[in-house]
Nucleic acid binder design. Structure first.
Lengths: 201, 201, 201, 201
DNA sequence: GATGAATGAGCATTCATTCAT
DNA sequence: AATGAATGAATGCTCATTCAT
């Protein structure tokens, strides 16, 4: 990577950092492109070198924390499926919380209509999460942790809905509950019960 | 109610109907106040006789179907708590589906930040749903359908998250699955299992 | 017409007047919508109450002088066809000259692609002129001023091309020749010769 | 010419070719410098190695076909002046047609104001055509094909107006008539008649 | 000669909202 | 209650052009 490419990457990073901070602080609608570029110390037009539309930066902002979850689960081969899932719940909501409520809101607004989200797989985060989780469950069936007849598709659907639902409710309640506390309770009362009958001993 | 009041009500109804149709068709951001008034056959300014801000019409649009669920459950005294909840799940998603994906999206976007939706209690639909559902569960404890130690708050939270999550996922998937089919499966695999240990026999 | 409608008409007139003056002075590309509204003494947004796009005002500016030619010819029943046509040539170029070179240029640029010119017949000024002129010639055939076999369609085409061509050349030469002088010479040397053999005596 | 010069010429050729294609397809305003460079397979900045401003490429594009007409007429010494002129009409419209309607439009828009097209003589294409044509007529006077008193200036003016007018009308009609067919009729009915009285026998 | 990141002026356009009628 | 002309703030976005590499 030559000097120019490095500089370009650095510029993009500055924009994302500035955008993240502003978004956290004020929310998407309350900031404009110029606010971001000003904070990043670049020209207004430079924004459009890296993002096609104002909204697109949100995807990049939120991609950072989420993208790591998949890898983590991969590297937990020794753990039981239940523990993997608990970890998944936990990390998902941790990311949600660390992004902050405004970023979450805008991200949700954006991806609510996948047609708004151009080209990338990121527009399909839902699908991505779904596939990843289903894969984890299917592997557990293959590893004989879960019974043959486990409805992995349905379980995946339920879990994803619950996570996205918790996030949505958190935004709607204006952050009135602690995501991580509730996540733990959800796992205890719901996740474990639901999986119990599919666990192989 | 005199003639004038009737006419006024009729005008409001026309606005809501027009707004609903447009919202379904195009989504909130793609329409403006004039679109609505034009379709309703009234002048632009008339909109502001009935709604303080553009967003406010969405609340009126979405209130219609949802507000009926509460009453229905009220009138099902003879049913078992499980059946009431199944009915709740079912009706909720029925409303979601009948509103259409664009209305759902916009409604979600709006209420995602309750600070945007002031003055009306409907801006707190989440809270309203929550309270109503918790009430149903608490009643079931009082009626001795559920055990004394049932964590009604947690169960309510889980159910609401699941419903809102299913709705969110439906929007994100661009309507790729059938809400009602999945709802039924959710009830079967998840709801029933989760409640089982709290049921009094 | 009530007070409000009168006021609206007045506003539009102010915009057209302001636009005409600025256009004459500086040319289309050198002025922006705000210049026009400022000169007209109205708010920027008001421009868009009357014109869908910046370009559209040019059509209204130029329509004024041209639209009268048709009526004039109508009211010259006693004149010979040759004299009518000479009058037509003359008046056309008079309008061109009185509009000024910048208005002409922009008008030509606009209508050069009829797909740019929305809805109205005015976008089809060429067609309008053509039809009107052909009508004059056809009437002359009917009145037995011109012979039965006169190729009115072709003659119309030639005349219209010549007029639009003279206008185009005038713009291209940056106003280096006097439109009216040349028009008279055109009529003398070309128009008369061309028509001669179709004149009935 | 060394290797580097050859490569440079090749790059310029690629840009012109790409520009021509895009211009035909979409028209000048609808394309930007990046479209052209992308299609040509070079970097954006390279454009400015060869053209001072975006508009300048149009001149290079349109120069190609037109510039040949002059030479052709030169090499037709044995033909009669009438036939030369007919050839001129024909070739002019052939060029117009082969350039395509969008290129014609843009070219017309550009040269409509010669102040926009400085530095090159081609900005004065009108003048160039005029001079060339006048030269042909003057030669015909000198060769005693035309009478001494032929108003060559006026005839040139008429012919040029007619050709540019036909082109303008063709654009305005959105290509609704066949330029070449009409050109032939024009020559037959108008050009020949007009010249007749100046022909020496 | 070629590159492509950076620039930043420039502007059309939208539209929620107001208010005199 | 209804109207619809007027408002004017607000801003996303384009893109020709420059210049360090």
């Amino acid at each position: 990577m030559n000097k120019r490419q490095t500089a370009a990457l650095e510029t993009k990073r500055k924009l994302i950092t500035a955008g993240l901070e502003l978004l956290r602080e004020k929310g998407f609608d309350a900031i404009n492109v110029e606010d971001i570029t000003q904070k990043a110390g670049v020209a207004k037009g430079t924004f459009y070198t890296y993002f096609k539309r104002k909204e697109d930066i949100v995807l990049d902002i939120s991609r950072v924390p989420f993208s790591e979850i998949a890898d983590e689960i991969e590297n937990m081969k020794e753990l039981h499926i239940i523990e993997k899932l608990i970890h998944y719940y936990h990390r998902f909501m941790e990311c949600v919380e660390s992004c902050g409520i405004n970023v979450c809101r805008q991200w949700t607004r954006d991806v609510l209509d996948p047609n708004n989200v151009p080209e990338t797989k990121d527009g399909q985060k839902w699908k991505y999460d779904y596939d990843m989780l289903k894969n984890i469950l299917d592997n557990a069936v293959r590893n004989e942790e879960l019974k043959e007849n486990t409805p992995t598709e349905l379980l995946t659907h339920i879990i994803i809905s619950e996570l996205y639902g918790m996030m949505t409710c958190w935004c709607m309640s204006d952050g009135k509950f602690e995501p991580l506390d509730w996540t733990d309770k959800f796992c205890e009362v719901q996740l474990k019960t639901m999986l119990e009958k599919y666990i192989r001993r």
